[in-house]
Amino acid sequence: MIDGLRRLGRSTLFWLNRLGRATLFLLRLLSALPTLAKRPSLAIRQLYSVGVLSLPIIAMSGLFVGMVLGLQGYANLVDFGATSSLGRVVALSLARELGPVLAALLYAARAGSALTAEIGLMKTTEQLSAMQMMAVDPFARVYAPRFVAGIIAMPLLAGIFTAVGILGGYFVAVQQLGVDSGAFWSQMQSTVKLFDDVINGVVIKSVVFGWVANWIAVFEGYDAIPTSEGISLATTRTVVNTSLVVLAVDFVLTALFFGV
């Protein structure tokens, strides 16, 4: 009984401690941004590894998710003779939820884990300490470029995911199942609103998700226990925590943007 309470208290203190460290880390990260602005090439290199290399998995997943939405939507709407609303169903579900959320989850698995492992290994092999010895600030040189590149990459990836998904839904609905292409696009255009759905849904959500995902990924690497086991633990924690936080934040944002 007392043991249980003691364990609960210890783990609570542990999490509060980590949260505080993560916040201080974020502040130091933000204060390193002006230094980064002088050397944007560092961020471009990172944009390549988190953005360009994530492109195939994002595009493929978007295509298949869109195609599944087209098929499922058709199978369920055909009973009501409402297959002309398919474009609306596919576009709204992709733009408001699936596009940014699935892109963020895939990003956490594909790029976030790699960030954590890379930084964790740098820490383990004492490259970061070596940098500090040479008066190179790892915040400006290592953490900030990765953080910024991730925040730039995330909305672009979510936009590509959504657009490719809609094209996949179009392919299945119009080319395969024979929904009228005019009805598909016109119903979509009459319901999807630029500011409510595209800007709030895709852009704002994915910028927030990118912030959260990269903050967690870089922090877990920074905070990893410098052993091989510690790195594996940190990498797992990145993917698990990012997924949970992204889904929770998504609920808050959805309530904010689309709640009544």
Binding site: G159, I160, A163, I166, K193, L194, V198
Partner: peptide
């Protein structure tokens, strides 16, 4: 992709 979302979808 955003251009398409703005022009063709919305």
């Amino acid at each position: 992709a955003f251009f398409m979302l703005a022009m063709k979808v919305s």
